[in-house]
């Protein structure tokens, strides 16, 4: 297995049966999305690396118990969400807005996308990043799950263990604040 035509869920089942190529494909598909979700949630590269690895570790450990009850990305993001919440609870100091801006500015951004090359887009992204940093954690997480994980209300509600209306409300607040930031 390992063919890109297979869904994430089938790949995960194949990996549970011992197909390492399936895991490689699965990992390649989801590594960026997962890493960005974690990084933008906690805004700390070292912690993000740690949580990223821990997320995959838990996935690997529970591979034999995996059942196709939801999208694979939902399951993966739920693991990551739980780890992020635990990380918040440990009250590790988060990076400030300026530090976050510097990190995100320097991290893996293609040279063509570096702010110094595209000043207008940079300004937009900078404002978006600042708006994200200013969001309460729950709103930011809902926003990231929506735009990074491409999840719907139901899936976000499942991951965050709240009702869909609550998710919708959080997204509305987040969307309003980001939009307001752009209107400045």
């Amino acid at each position: 297995m390992g063919d890109v035509a297979y869904s994430d869920e089938k790949l995960m089942l194949a990996y549970a049966d011992g197909d390492l190529r399936a895991f490689d494909t699965l990992y390649a598909r989801n590594r960026g999305m997962l890493y960005r979700f974690i990084l933008r949630s906690i805004a700390d590269r070292a912690s993000a690396d740690e949580l990223f690895q821990e997320t995959w570790s838990r996935l690997i450990a529970s591979r034999e118990r995996y059942r196709v009850e939801a999208k694979f990305s939902t399951w993966l993001l739920q693991i990551a969400h739980n780890l992020v919440i635990d990380s918040f609870r440990r009250a590790r100091p988060q990076a400030g807005p300026e530090e976050t801006e510097n990190i995100l500015r320097d991290l893996d951004a293609p040279e063509s996308e570096r702010p110094e090359h595209v000043l207008g887009e940079f300004e937009q992204r900078r404002r978006l990043q600042m708006a994200l940093d200013a969001l309460p954690g729950e709103q930011r997480e809902a926003f990231l799950l929506r735009v990074e994980g491409a999840l719907g209300l139901a899936e976000i509600a499942e991951i965050t263990a709240v009702g869909q209306e609550t998710v919708k409300s959080r997204l509305r607040y987040a969307f309003a604040k980001i939009r307001e930031k752009f209107a400045e």
Binding site: G32, R36, I60, L104, L107, Q124, L128, E148
Partner: peptide
């Protein structure tokens, strides 16, 4: 607009660590 933000990804070391863990 969000997708225009820097596309942060795990580095090669992290990838290698995760894949080694899976193996």
């Amino acid at each position: 607009l969000y997708r225009k933000l820097p596309r942060a990804e795990p580095d090669a070391k992290l990838d290698a660590a995760v894949q080694a863990m899976a193996r």
